[in-house]
């Protein structure tokens, strides 16, 4: 997967799409305040000013924003896989870092070792208990059995497991969509050996929702696929690449200094005040 930071507007559509697709529970304001948000993809925002000294010493008065959508990188040399004591997170032959919910015991070592901190832990039965009853435990109402709860269950994606408490979860590259595409291709291929899923047949949830098509996903073993071409771009880099985790999700760096001598140069505002200054004066 590549995520183009030049075209990413920070609209959060990917976050919402991922939540709908993968049955990510809504944990409520109280749990968010306690740091237990469950979103598999998040939008990191960094504020800086043009002055590197000021960046370290005070909050910038006219901040420039840098954004980065971060989901599981599916590292080739995943630090999370190495430390799981029960082999609940391992690599498959396609290159995905897979998370086996039914094997996870919940030691949370994988989350500690992830340098990107993309792993989320089910601290409570977020799907089974009501938002104001998490702390009551077994004394709370079992939502799976109430009428309202059953109605809510129908909202969920039947292709994705609903996780219980004590289990780690993270972005799966929408493995259910990958598998569906593979199955459909095999059905279509019948007796022939043509089981390779062509590029562009399916999109993962965040990719489908992104309005500026910043997210490109596909098969990197195919040099003609869109994602392979995207990765061939000069701007392509890995987040925290020096750790040698070899992430499969790479970023295309944002250009903030276009060359004024180029014929298609257009000045770009980096902060809100700059943007305001660039607008034509209202009459």
């Amino acid at each position: 997967m590549t995520i183009d930071l030049n075209t990413c507007t920070g609209c959060n559509a990917c976050v919402v799409a991922c939540q709908s697709e993968n049955n990510i529970p809504i944990v409520g304001k109280d749990q968010i305040m306690r740091g237990r948000e469950m979103s598999w993809i998040r939008l990191d925002r960094y504020y800086s000013s043009g002055d590197p000294i000021e960046n370290r010493t005070s909050l910038p008065s006219d901040p420039q924003t840098s954004l980065m959508p971060v989901a599981c990188m599916h590292c080739e040399r995943a630090p999370c896989e190495q430390v799981c004591p029960v082999n609940a997170t391992v690599h498959d032959e396609q290159g995905l870092n897979v998370m086996a919910y039914n094997r996870c015991v919940g030691t949370r070592y994988c989350a500690n070792n992830c340098p990107y901190k993309v792993r989320r832990f089910n601290f409570f039965d977020y799907n089974k208990r009501a938002r104001d009853q998490f702390y009551l435990g077994p004394l709370g109402v079992n939502q799976f059995k109430t009428e309202g709860g059953i109605l809510k269950s129908m909202q969920r994606n039947p292709d994705v497991t609903v996780r219980m408490r004590g289990v780690m979860e993270k972005c799966t590259y929408c493995v259910q969509r990958i598998e569906q595409a593979k199955i459909a291709q095999k059905v279509k291929a019948r007796d022939s050996n043509d089981i390779h899923v062509p590029d562009g047949v399916f999109k993962v949830a965040c990719q489908a929702a992104c309005p500026s098509e910043a997210i490109v996903f596909g098969d990197i073993s195919n040099p003609e696929s869109a994602v392979s071409k995207s990765k061939a771009n000069d701007r392509d880099y890995s987040l925290l690449g020096y750790l040698n985790t070899r992430p499969r999700t790479t970023y295309l760096g944002r250009l903030r200094n276009p060359n004024p001598q180029m014929p298609d140069y257009k000045p770009d505002a980096l902060s809100r005040m700059e943007y305001k200054a660039m607008q034509p004066q209202s009459l």
């Binding site: 901190k117 601290f123 039965d125 998490f134 408490r165």
Partner: peptide, 18 residues
């Protein structure tokens, strides 16, 4: 209380999982 209700009764949060 911990085993019946969940690890959330402790103060853990992302990224401090231990």
């Amino acid at each position: 209380y911990l085993v019946s209700t969940g690890v959330g009764v402790w103060g853990l949060r992302s990224p401090i999982m231990w």
